[in-house]
Design a protein around this nucleic acid. Structure first.
Length: 274
DNA sequence: CCGACAACCTGTGAGC
DNA sequence: TGCTCACAGGTTGTCG
């Protein structure tokens, strides 16, 4: 499920409930994630106090006294709070017990990651192998249309896969790439270096607006989710084009088209994206 | 250097 | 109802 907004919503939801609390127990059940989880992770966390929860790209950074737990949710991962002693289900791979709550990591496809590093400072974390090559954060003032236009100059291929290139900019996954291009009126087939600066300004604004709207939309329903018994559904994003092949474009009524680019499904409106 | 693609896994839904 | 196949929102390594 997670793209950047869901990871950020997760961070905001967990932080006020866990920061300042101590790990009283931890359990690793399945260490075979994207990267092997260190078998000593539970022992390392024991007795440590959580100091903060940060985010870089789609990685959550749990800052402890003597190191940082770098967590990624992959394509199917989930971090949730639940009452202590809640019985683990099939894909519940890791638990950290805090004062009165259990933080539980679930990931059926095991594309996610739980990596421990002794790094605690921002500088040391930034040079961690998982984080060092990451591109710009789109929700920072440094990211804008002029930056984007410059960055696209060396890419001759179609823009859509380029937007998903995390070494350029992070946090734009398959859904948000399609939605942002629709919002900016740019075809996903356009060569990246052919997108005008004017279009890049619209696109950068669309990316930020789409991500912010999703974070705002996810906030309330995610809080519901955490506070519920876990049976309520995930939040639904109102997609204009993603997953809507054949349906009428909400802007011009042209049927939404789809194709595969770089192995990923793409959706766009041939009528108003040129 | 760039870009396309397979691979990592399991679950789900469509079609037969 | 049950089987098979295609596909799923991410990331990384390889190959051309």
């Amino acid at each position: 499920m997670p793209e950047l907004p869901e990871v950020e919503v997760c961070r905001r939801s967990l932080a006020p409930q866990l920061i300042g609390q101590q790990v009283s127990a931890a359990t690793l059940r399945v260490p075979r994630l994207r990267h092997p989880v260190a078998p000593e992770l539970p022992q390392l966390l024991l007795g440590q106090t959580l100091r903060d929860i940060g985010r870089r790209s789609k990685y959550l950074l749990f800052g402890f006294d003597s190191g940082t737990l770098i967590a990624h949710l992959g394509m199917s991962g989930n971090l949730r709070l639940m009452p202590p002693a809640t019985p683990p289900q099939k894909h519940d791979h890791f638990d950290a017990q805090f004062a009165d709550r259990l933080l539980r990591y679930t990931d059926p496809r095991r594309f996610g990651a739980l990596v421990w590093t002794p790094a605690t400072s921002a500088e040391a974390l930034a040079s961690h192998p998982l984080l060092a090559a990451l591109g710009i954060e789109p929700l920072t003032p440094q990211f804008d249309g002029v930056w984007l236009h410059r960055a696209l100059q060396k890419h001759r291929g179609p823009i859509k896969p380029v937007l998903m290139n995390a070494s350029l900019l992070v946090g734009v996954g398959n859904i948000y790439a399609a939605e942002s291009l629709f919002a900016a009126g740019i075809s996903p087939l356009t060569a990246a270096n052919q997108v005008s600066e004017e279009s890049c300004i619209r696109l950068a604004a669309a990316i930020q607006q789409t991500l912010r709207a999703a974070i705002d939309a996810g906030g309330s329903s995610f809080r519901d989710y955490v506070h519920s018994d876990g049976s309520s559904g995930h939040f639904q994003l109102a997609c204009a084009v993603y997953g809507r092949a054949g349906e009428a474009c909400p802007r011009c009524q042209t049927p939404i088209a789809s194709l595969r680019q770089a192995g990923r499904s793409t959706f766009w409106c041939p009528g108003c994206q040129s």
